[in-house]
Each structure stands twice: as C-alpha cells, then as structure tokens.
Design a binder for these strands. Structure first.
Lengths: 341, 341
DNA sequence: CTGAAAGCGCTTACAG
DNA sequence: CTGAAAGCGCTTACAG
C-alpha cells in the first residue's frame, strides 16, 4: 500500500500538501492538486482510515446495536432487514459506514465500544428491554438514534411510526366497510407500539361514537400464536365482533387462522386489519389489509438525525421523527374479486 | 478518554508495560499486571482501536459486501437476515466486528475499501452478477469468503448448500409418497443453486428409474410470480404431473396458488416440495414441505473459514464448505391431520 | 520482567 | 499557497 509519504515524494511536495488535496482541495494550487490526484490514481494511493481517525477523532463509522440474542425472538421481525438496508444506504450516501457491534461487547457496555472505535454515532434497534447499557449510551455525549422506542439524552433522539394514527385509520376503514362491532388484538402493554396502537383504536371508536367493550380488547404478543389464541377468546364471546384490528400482521394472520378454523369466513363474517405490512401480508390468501409502516423511512430518518448531530456539535437532540403510516387495502376487508399474483 | 499514557503514569510504569498487560499478559509480573488492571478498570481505560490498528495493521473488522441495489431484488431474500446474524454472532465470539460496506464504495472497488479500512477479511453475499469488483477482491491477498457462489482466489473460499443432495431428498420423498410423475420448477440457469438443484432432480429421477420428461422441467425466477407462471404451464400439459419439486419456497408457494386456482388440491392432486425453508413455509396453509438450508450454518462456516485464513497467514484457501440440507415434511406432501399453530 | 525509543500514516496549527 | 514539525495513541524490537 502506497502511503502519503510515497505519494509526496513522487509528486515532489510535502505530505501536508497531499493531505490538503484530499481534505481541503480548494486551498491548494490547481496545478499541484491535479498532479497529485493524477499520481495518486496511478499508484493507487488512498488514505489509511485508521491513521486518519487517530488524527481526527472522526471515524466515519456509525455503530449499530442490534440485539440478536436467541432468547429474545424479537430480532426475527422481517422489518429489520429493510430498516438496516435503509440505514446503510442513507448513511453511505453521506460517507458513513455501519459497524455492527457485537451484542455483549465489552461486558455489555456499548458506550465503551463506541469510544474504543471512535464511533461518530450509534443507532439502536429496540430490543424490548430496558437495557441499562442503552440508557448509559443515550445519556452520554455520543449521538444516538433509537428505533421504535422513545429514549432521551443530551444528543439522543428516536424514530417511531405514527402508531396511534395508523390504528385510527384501520378502525375507520373497518367502520366504512360497515362494521360496527370492532374488536382489537393489542400488542404487549409493555411495548410502546402496543400502547400507542391501542390508544389509537380507542380514540377512533370514541370519535365514531362506537361503544368500547372491554371484552373486545385482548392482548397478544405480536406473534402468530398469540394472535391465534387471542382470536379464539374473541370467538367465544356472546357478542362476537364483526371486525378485528390486530396490532401486528403476524397476529392478524394467526387471527385469520382461528376464524377459519371456527368455520367462519374472512372478510364475510369477520373482517381483519393488521399492522406493519410485512412481506407475508401480500402473500397470504386472501391478502391482508394492513397499516403499512415506512420501513425505509426508519433508516433514512435515523441517518438524517444522526448526521445532523454529528455535523453540528452544537446541536442537542433533534425532535423525534414520527413516520406516517398508510392503509393498504387487500382481501381481508374487501370482497372485491381476488387478483392473481 | 483516558489514554495509555495516563494509565502508565497512574501505575508508575511505562506505556510498554501497559501495552503488554493487554496484549501479552503472561509476560508481565503478576503483581504489576493486577495493579494495572485494577487501575484501568477504575479510570475506565480501554485501548483505542484506531491507534492499535495503525500500529498492528490488524483491525479486527471483517467487511460485509451485501449489494442492496434496488434494481436487484435478490437482497429481499429472508435468508440474508439470518445469515448475517449467524455471521455476526460467530465473528464476535472471536473478537471480530462486522463492517457493512457501502455498495458502491470507492468507485466500486471493494478491494480499495478493504485496504483503506485495514479489514482483516471480507465476506460477500452473492449478488447474482459477475461483479468485477468481487473478482478483483477474490484474487487479492485479502481473505475472502463468498456465500452461495463458488469463486476462487489465493485466499478465497465459499460456503454453499448441498443443493443437488437437497433436490434428491425432495424427489425421493415424493417418490415415497407414491408419486411417479414428478415435475420441477427450476431456478434460473445462470445461478449456481438453480443449476445444482436441477442436476439433483435429474439424478434422483435416474436413480429411481423414472423417465425424465423434458416438458416436466420449466424454469422459474425464484420468486412467487415465476413459480405461479411455471405451474400454469405444467397444468396445461396433457401429461399432468402428480408432484412438483420447486427449487425455491417462493416459487413453490406460487405454484400452489396456481394449482388451487385451477381447482385442484394440494397435496391430493399434486404434491409440492420447495427449497429453502423460509419463515413463510411454516405459515402458509397447508404448510409447505421443503428442503431446509442451514441458514445459521452459513454464517458460522464463513466465520470459521475466514478466521482460519486470518489467523494463519500460511493458510491458502480452505476447502469450500458444503452445508447439508434436510427435509421438513409439512402438509403439501402429506395428508396427516393439520396441526394448529 | 521492564523501559526508552522508533514507528504506524495521517492531520493541523504555525510560519512563511 | 506550502512546508517543517508536533501530535494522535498505540505496539514492538532492542537493551538491559
């Protein structure tokens, strides 16, 4: 590997000039600059990032904390792949790379890992726990962006979907389809999306003048089995709902299965709306009507917020990004002719 | 951040001794060592990775090249998430981190990016193209592991599933279920898995003494729509098959849809076996019998091969890893009572 | 077992 | 616009 010294020698200039050509080109004489660039290309010179980071304290690397512990199945969510890609793409447009941190790096101290590697920022995907290592990181001076979980700190913000708004859209849609007995399979009460989607459901019912029946609210776990179990409980009610808003697509699919097993039809007997718009939603039959989250938007918003904090040291914490959701209407709420794939 | 100099001062030793405590502990006096460790913990010292990398040329970082270009939908494959997690996990157990490289970093020269960042190795996920930047990297002295695509170089190896073996298992299983007219929806002929799975299908037919009918082989694209279209062609044949081996789960699901639309039943009229065992395979109804790939195994095998090359400079290219596949029997080939989720 | 010193490849005031 | 020099925080022969 050619070093800055080699290049300087070949160009007959000092290493300082070489450095300027790459970091502050407008300050060097055009002719010298062009020559340096030409020679650099010829001998394949490129600055060593470690040396650069050591000198500048800037690594152009953003850490990603993504807890993939087997014991917590949350990471299986098909969203993460799209979120990470969105993040990676948005970051790399600004010249940053993504460093995936080992889960229990440095005795679980993510902050230490961030310092060791001179990370310019960190983004973390909610792991559903109140991990003290994440809190410590959020409270530090390292720019942080949290996905899907509100968390605060001097240079910390978060990105989240408009969960309540999405839930309202879902309920309103069911109402427009003529449904008047709308139940919900909620997410776990300890998760932010679980809470907010339930709030939105309640708000929508109230706004529509529909009574809220406590037995029409059952809690699931965001997974298929939980949705299935929750639906069975709803089916046992005397006052059977004619529609269900499930706070997650997997639960919605579990619910549909329970409905079908009970000999009822979707959407004729019970209409179903999910939340997320996972790939599967379009593939099941009938297709699942659902509230789509802007997966790519998570990555873009996170990258934007992070880079704002990185580039402007004076910036404290930008306001959280609340991503709009949108309704995707498919077969589970509408009896229009089904389309072929 | 405390530096090695601070720590040395507080311990009353030289920086060389501090360095040894962390890199070569057995060579320093036990008492001194314990004291250094104690003080280090107290003041929160930890070595700066950039400085360390600059001095040693070893970054403990492995690059991941994962082409997520929108124009190529291949990256949507739900496998990648599991593969990446397996890789990350296996790597971090050995102290390595994963750096996700921007797709078109440095004018597409991944080799340059690897050099700049002092990467110890690189793994790349097949993007389905003959990317010259990948070839260049494979031919360099940088340890490389390719996933799902054979590629060679002085310090390059790859990990791939036993595609032909998996295809044979699938066909044999259909045979055991009494099927004698077994068609296949093959993967694209330009992809390695596509070719190998077709070979396995042919081998199995020959071994079973079944005739191979050319019109029973149709090519798909690994996606649902392709599987659907391919199946429609098979259904138009005079000699309709009683079983189909689809070289990918999404194609299998597309095929099932086509069969259902034609008013036929799975598995009664036509049994179906897929390949991959994506999450969806267990969620569709009836469940999809399929040849499971060892997703986690990709990551583990890649990490093992890479670290062997990194740790032993004398090592050339380890032999490729061929991961065993296994049959997962579900409803599309068996009419046993369906289980609830 | 330990220390002084050189070196890794950059950047950046400071002079000119 | 350019160069000499110090410095970023480590590691590692080389002596002792």
């Amino acid at each position: 590997m050619a070093t800055i010294r080699d290049l300087a020698r070949q160009c007959g200039v000092s290493v300082a000039t070489i450095s300027r050509v790459f970091n502050n080109p407008e300050v060097v004489n055009a002719e010298t600059r062009d020559n340096v660039l030409r020679v650099a290309a010829r001998i394949g010179y490129q600055p060593n990032e470690s040396a650069r980071t050591l000198a500048t304290k800037k690594s152009y690397m953003v850490g990603l904390i993504w807890d993939t512990d087997h014991r917590r199945p949350g990471w299986r969510h098909p969203f993460f792949q799209e979120i990470i890609i969105g993040l990676k793409t948005a970051l790399s447009e600004r010249g940053y790379h993504l460093l995936m941190l080992a889960t229990s790096d440095d005795e679980g101290s993510h902050l230490r890992a961030a310092k060791r590697h001179n990370l310019d920022g960190v983004v973390f995907i909610d792991n559903g726990t109140q991990d003290p290592a994440l809190t410590q990181l959020a409270e530090s001076d390292v720019p942080c962006v949290s996905l899907d979980r509100p968390i605060t700190g001097p240079r910390t913000t978060y990105v989240i979907s408009d969960n309540a708004g999405g839930a309202r859209i879902a309920v309103n849609h069911l109402y427009e389809q003529g449904r008047r007995s709308i139940a919900t399979i909620a997410g776990p009460g300890r998760t932010r999306p679980g809470i907010e989607r339930l709030d939105g459901y309640r708000d929508a019912l109230a706004a529509l003048g529909l009574p809220e029946r406590s037995h029409h609210v059952v809690e699931g776990d965001f997974y298929l089995a939980g949705g299935h179990a929750a639906m069975r409980r709803l089916l046992e009610l005397d006052e059977r709902p004619d529609a269900v808003f499930a706070a997650g697509d997997e639960m919605a699919i579990g619910a549909i299965r329970a409905i079908t097993e009970a000999g009822l039809k979707v959407p004729e007997d019970i209409a179903v709306v999910g939340f997320d718009d996972i790939e599967l939603a379009a593939l099941v039959q009938p297709g699942l009507t659902t509230v789509a989250q802007d997966k790519g938007g998570f990555g873009t918003a996170a990258a934007t917020a992070l880079i704002a904090m990185i580039d402007t040291p004076a910036t404290g914490s930008p306001p959280p990004s609340v991503l709009p959701t949108s309704l995707v209407i498919r077969g589970t709420t509408s009896t229009l002719p089904r389309t072929s794939p």
